[in-house]
């Protein structure tokens, strides 16, 4: 495996920090977690200056472990201009927490000032591409830092799209000079919902732009998959992660769980598996764990 010239540090194994398992972090950081991600809006001040109490927990954790902020309401793809109040409150939180990096989603959450609180996909058009690139540039200028943008899972495709999602993302990363938070589960979910090969997607992503990887579970409804984050990570997604680790090199990776919370021991198993893959696929090359790791064509066939 080639060593990559990454724009982002490899922090190891992370987890999406949720209050449901916060007690496991009260005395010490549980092994093998070496960083955590939190949802930005849960810690940001409200419009009327109400400060969420959880900020104190966050500041305590920050003394022990790197934190990254992951937003859900930037709405970078909205036709609306950026919300100055949101940016200001985000910046205040960044100053208070000093995260390793910050991220949000490649989507829009509403238009005409409304927030539908959902991550809605964009039409992949030149207009949308330039619009999003311009907005990311404004954000990065305001925050004085490079941000990561996450690919979302989707259930619809649009008639007016003129390029694939991965073509759109590839071009966006160049134009906006930002990083990608690569959600491997989202790639898998969308590949099943829209009938493309996830490896075509992953191969198109420039190696040095991937700053973080998300792993999560989804619900299989037979005709389609829903990105619910309330199931264990499926084998196909683990295979794609192994492939991604080999292809993209050392990238911080984490497990997201947002519902149907299992006992901590179950989450720990997934975290240990991330750690194992990170160790097996090290800087020194891909060491096959007893021939278990799949080659790309095998993954492709399996999917």
């Amino acid at each position: 495996m080639k060593k990559r010239d990454s724009l982002f540090p490899d922090l190891g194994v992370g987890i999406g920090f949720r209050r449901e398992f916060a007690s496991h972090f009260s005395k010490q950081i549980p092994h093998p977690v070496s960083w955590i991600e939190v949802v930005t809006e849960n810690y940001m001040a409200w419009e009327n200056d109400i400060q969420p109490p959880a900020i104190k927990t966050l500041q305590r954790l920050r003394k022990e472990i790197p934190i990254v902020l992951h937003g859900v309401s930037l709405s970078i793809g909205s036709a609306d201009p950026l919300n100055p109040s949101y940016l200001k409150r985000w910046k205040s939180l960044i100053d208070a927490v000093e995260p390793a990096w910050v991220s949000d989603h490649l989507c829009w959450t509403g238009v005409n000032g409304e927030n539908l609180h959902d991550l809605m996909p964009l039409p992949y058009t030149e207009e949308a591409l330039q619009h999003v690139a311009n907005k990311i540039d404004q954000v990065q200028t305001f925050l004085k830092r490079r941000i990561l943008i996450e690919n979302v899972s989707s259930y619809v495709e649009f008639n007016q799209s003129a390029m694939t999602e991965w073509e759109f993302i590839n071009e966006l990363l160049k134009r906006a000079d930002c990083g990608l938070l690569l959600d491997v589960n989202n790639v898998y979910v969308s590949s099943k919902n829209h009938g493309f090969n996830p490896l075509d997607y992953l191969r198109a992503i420039p190696r040095n732009r991937v700053g973080q990887i998300h792993l999560a579970g989804h619900s299989d409804l037979g005709t389609h998959l829903i990105d619910t984050h309330d199931e264990p990570i499926c084998e196909e997604v683990w295979r794609l992660y192994e492939w991604s680790r080999e292809h993209f090199g050392p990238v911080s990776a984490m497990v997201e769980r947002d519902g149907n919370f299992p006992r901590w021991e179950e989450l720990e198993k997934e975290l240990l598996r991330v750690k194992e893959i990170q160790t097996e696929v090290s800087d020194y090359g891909y060491r096959l764990p007893q021939g278990k790791a799949a080659q790309p064509f095998e993954i492709s066939a399996a999917l």
Binding site: E41, N42, M44, W46, S73, N83, R89
Partner: peptide
């Protein structure tokens, strides 16, 4: 309609 970043403000 919600005009808030945090869904808890809805």
């Amino acid at each position: 309609p919600s005009r808030y970043a945090n869904i808890s403000e809805v």
